[in-house]
Amino acid sequence: MERDLEQLNSALNSVKILRSNVRRVFESVSNGLRADHGDDGKESKYILELQELLTTVNNNLRDVENSMSNLTPPPGPFSLGNTTYLSQETTQERQALYGQLVNTYKWTDKIREYSALAGNILAANSFNKTYKTFSTTKRRKTQTSNHNVPPEVIENLITSIDRLFPDVTITTNSPFVPNPVIQGRVLKAIIAFKGLMIEWVVVKAHAESNDLWTESRYKVFRKVTENCHAAMCHFYSPMMPELAVRSFLHWFHSYNTLFSAPCKRCANHLHNNLPPTWRDLRNLEPYHEECK
């Protein structure tokens, strides 16, 4: 590389010298006979001078040819497919585009090279802080997309969960958007799924409509809806969406004692005229909003 640059420099230098000497030839040709050639034999003097100059040019030319032969030819034009046409752009502000494009390409190429190197080095010295290890089968599962799953998969999941809880019925009533409705004797919940993940939950009274967009008219169900949103975020796990849905619904099932279970802490049913609307996320114990 270093040697190449030196040779290129010397080649350029010799070209420069050649050009300046050629220039001198033309100067003297254009000027013709001058005063400093004297009076006698001025023509032969002039011819001598010209001859001298031409010899230098000749020498220089040989130098250029020598240094040229030393140079390694470049590996052909740098082509980026059709984008090469950008270099033929006529409008002024776009002329620079191709140059920038080539630079960017080179830059990303370098990044790839360096990151591959860094990756190799880091893989050799692992510094995991967690004990969590995923087995290969689980890791393969994460490769599948959770956002775009066929509706049958969701329906199968819902029917399998429905079988888990015999005291509630879970129905999917819309053919295109599977928003299952969970209906028990205590309350009713409408859940919107996005792929396999829970997107929205609304809890309503037994007799209220199945509309996803209006909240319940009762304070207690509005509070439960709020808590469901918190739990929905708590159980959210894009790695294992089925497990997330299952654990959410398992937690949600604890609301079948919404009106009948007293608060675990204050042992009362009512606080602020509301029953215990919070269920612990781990042990599913009922608590008032203020007691948890």
Partner: peptide, 11 residues
């Protein structure tokens, strides 16, 4: 909000 007497009687 409740429609089953047994569930909310204590409350």
């Amino acid at each position: 909000p409740c429609v089953v007497p047994a569930m909310c009687w204590d409350l």
